[in-house]
Amino acid sequence: MKQTKKSSGKKHFLPLLLLSVLFYGVMLLLTLTAKDIHLARLPQVTASRLGNVSFTYLFTPENGEPRIATKQMPGIPKELYDSGQIFTVTTKVTDEMTYYYAKKISLKVDSSKENDTHYAISDSFFRDMIILSGYENLKDGDEVNLIKEEK
């Protein structure tokens, strides 16, 4: 209030004061925690670029015997690919904060390459960020909370 001189004889003084303090207190609390609460209610995801994985494949040189060769290529975990929930991360930057969204994409795998845990991506220049965990119930366009980033 402007000044704290209050006259006596005001019937409902104390409850009103408490109410005011409560209101401003709640607003203050919300101001400080709103962003964190917002993020906590989003799907928590981690994402990173697909690392290179060793794949074995049958290599037939022009004039010679087929033999087993290995190559390093970007690999996507089999579980992730089979689930069909492949998303990349887009960002939107505003004054208040940076928003992350999940964008569904489709990937082609190179079935000639083999590995126990990963599929090889056809496009060997693929360097996009893929959501690696927390993708179970995501839909295209959902906002997400990006926990860890490895660029």
């Binding site: 401003y24 607003m27 919300l30 101001t31 709103a34 917002h38 004054d95 208040e96 904060m97």
Partner: peptide
């Protein structure tokens, strides 16, 4: 309002 609209808070405290 409370959890998606952050500029509400900035503006609120400015008004106050």
């Amino acid at each position: 309002l409370f959890f998606d609209c952050f500029r509400f808070y900035t503006m609120f405290w400015n008004s106050v």
